[in-house]
Design a protein around this nucleic acid. Structure first.
Lengths: 216, 216
DNA sequence: GTCTATAGCAGGATAGAC
DNA sequence: GTCTATCCTGCTATAGAC
């Protein structure tokens, strides 16, 4: 398809297409034939370069998913460092922005969260790598970062749940595009995504925040 | 396994096991052989009763998923009707409670949300049925119910996003048990689930709500 | 490093006895 | 309704020419 296809070697093309297909359909629903056809190379290339299908899947995470996760985290820290004053609102906004708009293209972002969700749904081949090398360290950073805003020092669990909740929002709105679009009637264009970031920041900071009009 | 297995007919046993397996692994990762073995019946039974694997999958949604979704919604309305005064907090609490504790057993709830998430991740065989017959009508009800609390009548989209956000929390905490457990160190026992309900209600109503200690 | 050909096997589906 | 036996397709993986 792409004019560049012949410039990059088949190993890279396979990794690219494999990632997209694994994200879209899941490991079992994708066949090696499908991948090699999409990558415009021979069926045997997967076994030659990666040994077998499982290892190709793992390589997708090693060479594609992990670096991208690091890019997003770097973006988050970049945004933070440019803020002259540190505030809770600033941190949440940086988080939502890095994950929902950040350095990734739309396709990358969708692909990225789909791969993660699939792996998180049920412990899979790449779960350990993902949890130990990316999720846990990043959560550790966030706990430290949000420490000053803790109600008490003892309530570590509450902070954990709050952080997870922010991710819940970001990941859900990325992943559940189909029902969101069907229910709201909104396509995921730039305008809507900007509104989503605003919504997520507001919701995470203030919740529904409709108390003014209590009493039906 | 169960002592009751021989009492219910094979059609029901197949539906039960198929649902659990489809939820756990996804459509493609499950084989008909696996299902029939788990259901202690013959391989040919699936084709005899359901024609083919795809139709079995659809029947799982028709005869298992949909009735359960209705039970949860009924529970939500029940709780609402017992509240003497209607309030935003009451509605959110009823929602979180119905979905996170409600009428379902733990296994049912996990199974239920896994099936839905898989279907929502990418439009699948049952997506239309699910969206048109369950999600859209229920969202319609919620929009009406939350209408009195709208900031303005024009802001329908904001209410939609708020409702979706509540579901995002509920579904994520149900679905992403693995990372939640790994990060928080908490198993999903009764105590933790009760805390989760409290957390979700609080978070949805008030967000992070840490403004008191602004300024690091 | 790329390709063809094929081994070897697992899965879905069916025919037909009981 | 249940079972056995079997067909056939489509998959992963490999061997070996180029």
């Amino acid at each position: 398809m792409d004019a560049m296809d012949n410039c990059t070697d088949s190993k890279d093309r396979i990794l690219d297409k494999a990632e997209a297909l694994f994200a879209e359909k899941g490991f079992h629903a994708v066949t090696v034939r499908e991948i090699t056809q999409a990558a415009h190379c021979n069926l045997a290339a997967v076994n030659y370069h990666f040994g077998n299908k499982q290892n190709l899947y793992l390589e997708v995470f090693r060479t594609r998913w992990m670096p991208r996760a690091r890019r997003v985290q770097a973006c988050f820290k970049d945004v933070l460092s440019t803020q002259d004053e540190r505030s809770l609102a600033g941190i949440v906004h940086a988080l939502a922005e890095a994950f929902l708009k950040g350095p990734l293209t739309d396709d990358e972002r969708l692909c990225h969260s789909q791969l993660m969700i699939r792996e998180m749904a049920k412990p899979g081949l790449a779960t350990d790598m993902l949890v130990d090398e990316v999720i846990k360290p990043f959560f550790g950073d966030l706990v430290v970062l949000l420490g000053p805003y803790l109600p008490e020092n003892g309530e570590r669990e509450r902070v954990m749940l709050d952080i997870v909740s922010i991710f819940a929002m970001v990941i859900y709105f990325n992943f559940a595009r189909v029902p969101v679009t069907r229910v709201t009637g909104q396509e995921y264009d730039e305008v809507f995504k900007e509104r989503l970031v605003e919504h997520i920041v507001r919701f995470c900071l203030k919740g529904l925040d409709m108390d003014k009009k209590e009493g039906a």
